[in-house]
Amino acid sequence: EANILVVEDELKLVEILKRTLSENFNVTVFNTFDEVAALLEHSSIRFDILVLDRMLDQKDSLTLIAPLKEKFPQIKVLVLSAINTPSEKASALDLGADDYLSKPFANEELLARLKVIAKRMPSELRFGNIAIDMLERTAKVAETDLPLATKEFLLLRAFLKSPGKVYPKSVLYEEVWQTSADIESNAIETTVNKLRRKLEEAGASASIKNSRNLGYWLEE
C-alpha cells in the first residue's frame, strides 16, 4: 500500500477522505501549512503521494511543491482546489503537481485518480542481488523469495531507497514505525538483527552495517 499524506484544513472533508482512502492506502493527515513546511526541515518520513489543499491558513500551498519534490524526489502530488480555471490548473502542473482535482469532487473520482498515480510509481527497488516489490510487499535475494515480517520489510525498504545512506535511530523510528515517539528501546536492534541474519542466510550481496554513534546503513 502506498503511503498518502492528506493535507486539508476542512475537518469534515478530512474525515470523508480518511474513510474513502484508508481501504486502499496508508493515510496520514495534516491540517496546516506549517505542518507540511516542517517536513522540509525535520522529517525523514517518506510519503508516496501528497493530496494537497490549494489554500492552507490563507497561504499558497503550491509554493511547497517544488521544495518537497527536491527533498523527496519520489513523491507525487495531487492538488485539491475550489478554483476551477484552466490557468490555475496549468499553474499547479507547471509548479510540479502531478494531478489537479477541483472541488467539489466525487470520492470515487479522487480514489480512481490516486490509484492511477500509484500505478505509475516504480514498484521495485534493487541493490545488488536484493530486490523488493513495494506494491506486493515481497522481497527476494537472487530471485529467491525472502520471507519478511512487516517491520523487517519496511526496514529493508528504507535501506534500499538510499543504499549507503546512514540512518540514525531517530530516523528509523519515523521511517519504519511512523512515529517520533519512543518505542521499546531495543526494537530497532532486534529488527535489524533479524533482517541482517535473514539477508546473510539467503546469500545477499549487501549487508547491514552499523556504528553506535551514527546509525545503520546497507553496504555491498
Rank of each mutant, 00 (worst) to 15 (best):
Ala2Glu: 14
Ala2Thr: 11
Asn3His: 14
Val6Gly: 01
Val7Met: 03
Leu13Asp: 02
Leu17Ile: 03
Leu17Val: 05
Leu17Thr: 00
Lys18Met: 08
Lys18Val: 11
Arg19Asp: 13
Phe25Glu: 01
Val27Gln: 05
Phe30His: 05
Asn31Gly: 10
Thr32Asp: 08
Asp34Pro: 05
Asp34Leu: 11
Glu35His: 07
Glu35Phe: 05
Val36Pro: 02
Ala38Ile: 08
Ala38Phe: 10
Leu39Gly: 07
His42Thr: 15
His42Tyr: 12
Ser43Tyr: 07
Phe47Ile: 03
Ile49Lys: 04
Ile49Asp: 05
Leu52Met: 09
Leu52Glu: 04
Arg54Met: 11
Arg54Glu: 13
Leu56Glu: 04
Gln58Glu: 14
Lys59Gly: 08
Asp60Thr: 09
Asp60His: 10
Leu62His: 06
Leu62Gly: 00
Ile65Val: 15
Ile65Leu: 10
Ala66Met: 11
Pro67Cys: 09
Glu70Ser: 13
Lys71Arg: 15
Phe72Glu: 07
Phe72His: 08
Pro73Ala: 08
Pro73Ile: 06
Lys76Gln: 12
Val77Ser: 06
Leu78Asp: 00
Leu78Phe: 09
Val79Ala: 07
Pro86Trp: 06
Pro86Phe: 04
Ser87Val: 15
Ser87Lys: 15
Glu88Thr: 14
Ala90Met: 12
Ala90Asp: 11
Ser91Asn: 13
Asp94Arg: 15
Gly96Ala: 07
Ala97Asp: 00
Asp98Arg: 03
Asp98Gly: 03
Ser102Leu: 05
Lys103Tyr: 00
Pro104His: 02
Phe105Ser: 00
Phe105Gln: 00
Ala106Glu: 14
Asn107Ile: 11
Glu108Asp: 14
Glu109Ser: 10
Ala112Cys: 11
Leu114His: 05
Leu114Pro: 01
Val116Lys: 11
Ala118Trp: 03
Arg120Phe: 09
Glu124Asn: 09
Arg126Trp: 07
Phe127Ala: 07
Asn129Met: 03
Ala131Gly: 04
Met134Asn: 08
Met134Lys: 14
Met134Pro: 02
Met134Ala: 09
Glu136Ala: 15
Ala139Val: 02
Lys140Gly: 05
Val141Lys: 02
Thr144Met: 12
Asp145Ala: 15
Leu146Cys: 02
Leu146Tyr: 03
Thr150Ser: 11
Thr150Ile: 12
Lys151Ala: 13
Glu152Gly: 04
Glu152Ala: 05
Phe153Asn: 02
Phe153Ala: 04
Leu154Asn: 09
Leu156Lys: 00
Arg157Val: 06
Lys161Pro: 02
Ser162Trp: 10
Lys165Gly: 03
Lys165Val: 07
Tyr167Thr: 06
Lys169Asn: 12
Lys169Glu: 13
Val171Ile: 10
Leu172Trp: 06
Tyr173Asn: 12
Val176Phe: 04
Val176Lys: 00
Gln178His: 14
Gln178Asp: 12
Ser180Leu: 10
Glu184Met: 10
Ser185Leu: 12
Ser185Ala: 14
Asn186Thr: 15
Glu189Gly: 09
Thr190Phe: 13
Val192Phe: 03
Leu195His: 03
Arg196Asp: 08
Lys198Tyr: 01
Leu199Ala: 01
Gly203Gln: 01
Ala204Asn: 02
Ile208Ala: 00
Asn210Glu: 12
Asn213Ser: 13
Asn213Gln: 10
Tyr216Met: 01
Tyr216Asn: 00
Leu218Val: 00
Glu220Pro: 15
